[in-house]
């Protein structure tokens, strides 16, 4: 039973991974790509790791999967934030359909 729920979680994670990478291909500029990629790929991989935890149970592998979820949730938004900030400072323009840019100093 737990194995079936775990496989469902793995399936959800794979679908979100695929959508995140599609967003990486389709969206027009760096910031939009960061939005799609960071959210979808992080959540997808977290869901995949949670499915792995449900299948393996409270064994060394399962506990490591839970720890890996914590590390991912802590590190991935920080790296997205650093990339967005540094590419704005490096002078990457927003997409021409953008509405406003309050960050220009």
């Amino acid at each position: 039973m737990l194995e079936v729920i775990g496989i469902v979680f793995i399936g959800i994670g794979l679908v979100f991974d695929l959508f995140g990478c599609l967003g990486l291909v389709r969206l027009p500029d760096v910031y939009n790509r960061l939005q799609a990629a960071t959210k979808c790929v992080t959540f997808g991989t977290c869901s995949l790791l949670f499915g792995v935890f449900l299948i393996l149970g409270f064994s060394p592998g399962g506990i490591k999967a839970l720890l890996c979820i914590v590390f991912l949730l802590l590190t991935s938004p920080v790296s997205a934030h650093a990339l967005a900030r540094s590419s704005h400072k490096a002078g990457v323009k927003l997409w021409e359909g953008s509405v406003c840019d309050d960050y220009q100093n």
Binding site: F19, N32, K39
Partner: peptide, 23 residues
């Protein structure tokens, strides 16, 4: 909710986005 939102935006052919940086 965020993930479903982004996924729906990505798979639509017209790409309904209106990006910008706000304070």
């Amino acid at each position: 909710k965020a993930n479903v939102d982004v996924a729906l935006r990505v798979i639509r052919p017209s790409l309904p986005i209106k990006p910008g940086i706000v304070k």
